[in-house]
């Protein structure tokens, strides 16, 4: 393989990482597991930076924990770690599920959720789980740290609001599902040579004791230039009794508001619409059952 960068830095502190980015003044780029970025560079889809800055070993950013009531995920956390984390399995199930089906085991062992978000792909099958959970991300640059909603990060295909030459995405967080809440994820792949899902769906639901849906977040991708939250589906659900009728209505509402597209070799628009029509109700149903306290094993490979 070609020499694509001259320096590979593994800073130990956030300050050190920020200083490195400052020092290179735009010539460095942040890398997580590298399983997308390094291929983009090798195959000419991204320019080769002078230096790579790898924040995955920064003290305190490698793990998953609780802070201020949030589940907080460090930028060093791999998809494997997220998929297996008991807290996320129990209280952010759709994220555990989506993290368990990206790539293969070797990729999930190094690829980070932070990297997946920064890559900002419309298919975003890793990110829509976090988006359904109303996740937030924390970035840091020379001007300091700030939290912002995940949805604000995505600008377009492969384009994020985080300047990966000058800023780091260091943590992600979401409020864990509590009693009366549940989430679920599902996606459809084809076996042929397209390493991206035909469609992915995730949902987080909150139901009252009488089964009325109190809150809902439904995400679908690819359904536009960025991973997409279907407000129409959420609006349809809120106030309705959890059940097939509401779920099917939500799917119809989602279809009415989303721009599902024909994409050559990946999926036809008709197929995607059919998947939303038939499978979004299933995702919602699993989320609702979980909200009602049912223990449904996380979906994933081998299931």
């Amino acid at each position: 393989m070609m020499a694509h960068w001259q320096h590979y830095h593994v800073p130990q502190t956030v300050a050190e990482a920020v200083a490195l980015l400052e020092r290179y003044d735009g010539g460095a780029r942040v890398v997580g597991g590298g399983t997308d970025l390094l291929l983009d560079i090798a195959q000419g889809r991204a320019p080769a930076p002078q230096a790579l800055v790898d924040p995955t070993r920064i003290e305190g950013l490698g793990g998953i924990g609780r802070e201020d009531g949030f589940v907080v995920i460090g930028c060093g956390a791999t998809h494997t770690a997220i998929n297996r984390n008991p807290d996320i399995v129990a209280h952010g199930t759709c994220l555990a599920e989506s993290s368990g089906v990206i790539g293969g085991p070797q990729v999930r062992n190094v690829a980070t959720l932070a990297g997946n978000i920064a890559h900002a792909m419309p298919a975003g099958d890793g990110t829509i789980g976090l988006l359904a959970l109303a996740g937030e991300v924390e970035t840091v640059d020379a001007s300091g740290r700030r939290w912002r909603p995940l949805a604000d990060v995505f600008l377009g295909p492969g384009s994020s609001a985080i300047d990966h030459h000058r800023a780091l995405l260091i943590r992600m967080r979401f409020l864990p599902t509590v009693e009366g809440e549940g989430s679920a994820f599902y996606r459809v792949m084809r076996p042929q040579g397209v390493a991206l899902p035909m469609i992915s769906m995730a949902a987080r639901l909150q139901a009252d004791a009488d089964g009325t849906i109190a809150a809902a977040r439904v995400t679908i991708a690819p359904a536009g230039p960025v991973p997409c939250l279907s407000e129409a589906a959420s609006d349809t659900l809120v106030g309705s009794p959890a059940g097939r009728e509401a779920f099917e209505a939500a799917a119809q509402a989602a279809l009415g508001s989303l721009s599902l597209r024909d994409s050559k070799y990946r999926a036809s628009r008709a197929y995607r619409e059919e998947m939303v029509r038939t499978h979004l109700p299933k995702v919602l149903s699993v989320a609702a059952e979980r909200a009602a306290g049912a223990r449904i094993e996380p979906w994933g490979e081998g299931k």
Binding site: M1, Y8, V10, V31, G34, T35, L38, L39, A42, L52, D54, T56, P105, Q106, V107, N109, V110
Partner: peptide
């Protein structure tokens, strides 16, 4: 102890 694809794993990540 963790399986990784060594062909795209930066050597210095393994420092």
């Amino acid at each position: 102890g963790t399986p990784v694809n060594s062909c795209v794993y930066p050597a210095f990540k393994a420092q």
